[in-house]
Structures are given as C-alpha cells and as structure tokens.
Amino acid sequence: MLNIKCPYCGMRSQNEFAYGGDATVKRPELNKEVSDKEWDTFVYLRKSPRGKHLELWHHISGCRQWFKVKRDTVTHEIFKTAKISEDI
C-alpha cells in the first residue's frame, strides 16, 4: 500500500488516488501550428525512467485536486509531493 501525502489533505492511502502519468510531458503551445511529430511526442512518447519519476496524481476520492509526486519506480519510495504550481 502506498501512502501518499496530498498537499491539501495530508497523508492518505493509495485507495483514494488515481494515477495521472508522467508530469514532465508538455502540451504543444495553444494557437500555434502543431506538427505530427510534436503531437506524437506529446500524446504517445514517454521516457518511463527506471528510478526517480515525476508524476501526476489525482485525489479523486478526496479533495479532487491534481498534484505532483516524485516517486521511485523501483522501490516505490515517495520523496516529495507538491501542488501543481509548485516546483519539485
């Protein structure tokens, strides 16, 4: 069981959260011509690192806020969590 510290509600069990994937992926800029390659990279391509991973989680059965988590994909250790607007 992962224990995840929601930046708004504090430490809760994994059961309250939904996973949102890699937080380092950037959407192509709005109101700009986007090439197929840029879309491909944004929608499908992922680094999927072995080790430290910055990711999004959603406190779906709690405050319903999205936030960032820095987690190890091998040990599942969670180093830090932060609000979307904060740096991690």
Binding site: M1, N15, G21, S48, E55, T75
Partner: peptide
C-alpha cells in the same frame, strides 16, 4: 497496479 513501476512485486489494493 496502475502506475509506472519496475518493481517485480505488487501492491495489495
């Protein structure tokens, strides 16, 4: 399990 993982062991939920 639903999140990126290289651990060859699972989680109870």
């Amino acid at each position: 399990d639903g999140y990126n993982s290289y651990a060859q062991r699972g989680n109870l939920p």
